[in-house]
Every structure is written in C-alpha cells, then in structure tokens.
Amino acid sequence: MHGFANPARFLRIARWLTPLLLVSGLLIAGAALAYGLLLAPADRLMGDTVRIMYIHVPAAWLGMGGWTTIAIASLVELVWRHPLASIAARAAAVPGAVFTAICLVTGSIWGRPTWGTWWVWDGRLTSMLVLLLLYFAYIALAGAAQKDMAAGTGGSRVTAIFGLLGAVNVPIINRSVVWWNSLHQPPSITMGQSAIDPAFLWPLLAATLGFSLLFGGVVLARMRALLADIQAEARLRRKAVSAEIGAEFRADQGADILSVSSDRL
C-alpha cells in the first residue's frame, strides 16, 4: 500500500487508469442499460416497471459503496497518515451522494406504481435518506476542513472521524429489511442465491459492474483534480512568500541605507 503513498507515482498510474475505467464503465453500463430497458423481458407482476431496477440497484450499491470507501480511507488516514487517504475519501463523497440520490428518486418512481405510494417511512427508505443527509454533512465538513487547512489552523482529522462514525449506517441499511418489518422487499440476492430470474439478473449484474467502473473512474478523476488544486495552491503560496521576503529584504536594505546615512550626518 505504501507503494502508492507517493503522489507522483499515484498520478502516473491514475493518468492511464482514469480514462480506462471511465470508457469501459460507460460501455458496459450503456450496453447493460440498453439491453435491460429494451430487450429484457417484463416482470410477471410489475410489467415494464421492473426495468427501473437496472438503475436503482447499482445506484443503491454505489451509494453504500461510496461511504464504505470513505470509511476505509478515513481509517487509513487516521492510523497510517497516508497522504492520499483524505483525498480519496473526499473524492468519493460527491459521486456517492449522487448515486444515493439517484437510488432514492428511482425507488420513489418505482414505488408509486408498485406499492401505491411515493414514499413511506419504513426502515430501508429512512436509513437510505439518512445516508444522503450524512453525505451532505460530510461534504460540508470536508469543505470547511479544507478552508481550515488553507488557513493553517486545522486538518481533516475531524472529517475522517465523521467518515468512520457515519459508517455505522451502512450495515443498518443492509439489514433494515431483515431486522424490521418493512414495505421494501427483503434482499433478492443473498450469498450466491438469487430470487431474481436469470433473464433479469445478468443485465443487472452487468449494469452494476459498469456503474462501479464508472464510479472508480470518477473518484480517480476527482482525486487528480484535488491533487492539482493542492499543488497549485502550494505553488501560489510559495510565490507569495518569496515575493514577501523579497519586499522585506528591499525594505531592510533601504532602512539600513537610511540609518547609515543618518549616522553619517
């Protein structure tokens, strides 16, 4: 892992890995969605509404995967002080929040014709909404911590601790339909068993793979952007400091000349 501690080495790998992940993700997710939306059969009860699943399930998986990424990166940051960890955590927050929002919106659209309601406060829906709110809080906190860091008064330690705290919600989302009676159905895919017919399952798995690759590509691209930001800021600061030192030096010289001349007088 410490092989990647060097940002220069990370950037070298990320330079070719980012477009690879983005393009392969777009191709696989696009093909899976085209197949799922146009060619896959309709469900015996839900009819065409079942097709929302090909977006909803990968979005839910990545919404939770995003926070899992944040939690692991936060742990690595707090224990090993890995220089890229806080950047990875911050890079995963916005895409994770977007996928969580997509999951909530598509779930709501599916719920109206299937259940007969847009929204209910059952365990699964509520815990997923809590995840979205946690993302908003994390993004706000990370932004504030970054300003603190720029001012030299603090770090991203608080953000990392919040990332670990929020991880408690992820297993709760996963288990909510098992622990509590809920309107949302229990898991269809458990430990190598699937209650989803193969005709639906294969496009679903392909869409999940494609969106996951896309997610990885976006996270890498955002990490590169954040690193570039930090580099640019450091360069500007160096420039400002050297300009300041130069000004002080000239002022000192001027004062010396003045004092010398006043001595002479």
């Binding site: 015996r44 009860l45 079942v50 299937t114 259940w115 309107l183 229990p186 269809s188 209650a195 017919d197």
Partner: peptide, 17 residues
C-alpha cells in the same frame, strides 16, 4: 383507509407467469 401492495423478493418474466 389505504392499501399498499408489498412486492416480494422474487422477480420472474411474464413468459413464466
């Protein structure tokens, strides 16, 4: 006063219905 249908975890194409 209101009924909500609960979907189960099984997904099956129409051809098999």
């Amino acid at each position: 006063t209101n009924l909500l249908a609960k979907h189960d975890e099984n997904y099956m194409p129409r051809e098999l219905q």
